[in-house]
């Protein structure tokens, strides 16, 4: 029964599984993994970069030309992101969840878990990390607090959203919240916008990396979208 359900789920959401034997076995392992874990394993393919504020509009124009939602103004967003952490017995054991909620549509709350970022070898074009996004109700913060998670940091991201096929591009400015309970009292963190190109897809679709690389090439030399090793950034 369960297998059938997952099969249906797989077909409905992820498309017809490819026919060759390798993909089939991969698809099967995906399905079994999904059954065992209770969630469908998704991976986020990620390229990151930044653009200085003065050149932002040039980038927006180019993205408007390249992406699907070309007509009209680019879609704006303004999100409040809170990072919750729970520390285990050793300092390495840290579990963190990110709660994002839109300040434009206040009812939109998303809880996100991301795994360790894999840099991979040279053949891999993007960063890859497992991820899980869950839409939640507005009491998720209370829920996390009661589970023992503590707010580690928070910020406001204001920016623009584009998509091309299943690729997602965000151009956002990160703001520091000066007063914990006042989301209007903000201070910009840098003179640049963060640019992220990402795709969330089922495990084992390495082809996406090539598409993303090709897309990133089209944004050069305006933005240098790269796979940036997060572990190296951690030492500060």
């Amino acid at each position: 029964m369960a297998l059938n359900f997952m099969d249906v789920f797989y077909r409905a959401y992820l498309g017809e599984p490819p026919n060759d034997a390798l993909s089939k076995s991969m698809a099967n392992s995906v399905v079994t993994q999904a059954i065992q874990g209770g969630i469908a394993p998704y991976q986020e393919y990620l390229l990151q970069g930044s653009i200085v504020d003065t050149s932002r509009d040039v980038l927006l124009h180019r993205l408007q030309g390249l992406c699907d939602n070309a007509e009209g103004m680019p879609q704006k967003f303004q999100d409040h992101e809170m990072v919750f952490m729970m520390r285990g017995n050793t300092p390495q054991q840290i579990i963190s969840f990110r709660v994002r909620h839109s300040l434009h549509q206040r009812q939109n709350w998303v809880l996100r878990y991301t795994g360790q970022t894999e840099i991979g070898d040279k053949n891999r074009q993007t960063l890859v990390r497992t991820c899980c996004d869950v839409a939640t109700s507005d009491n998720v913060v209370q829920f996390l607090n009661e589970m023992g998670f503590r707010l580690d940091n928070e910020f406001i991201a204001k920016g623009f959203f584009f998509h091309k096929g299943r690729m997602r591009v965000t151009v956002s400015k990160i703001y520091k919240i000066l007063q914990h309970d006042n989301l209007d009292n903000l201070e910009q963190l840098t003179m640049s916008h963060l640019v992220e190109l990402s795709v969330v897809a089922p495990v084992g679709q390495e082809q996406i990396g090539e598409d993303m690389k090709a897309f990133a090439e089209q944004l050069k030399p305006l933005v240098q979208l790269d796979k940036i090793d997060h572990r190296r950034l951690q030492t500060f």
């Binding site: 910020f155 840098t190 003179m191 963060l194 240098q224 950034l233 951690q234 500060f236």
Partner: peptide, 11 residues
């Protein structure tokens, strides 16, 4: 700038 933005959003 990229580095500081990422360090902020990630850590």
């Amino acid at each position: 700038e990229t580095t500081s933005l990422l360090q902020a959003t990630l850590f």
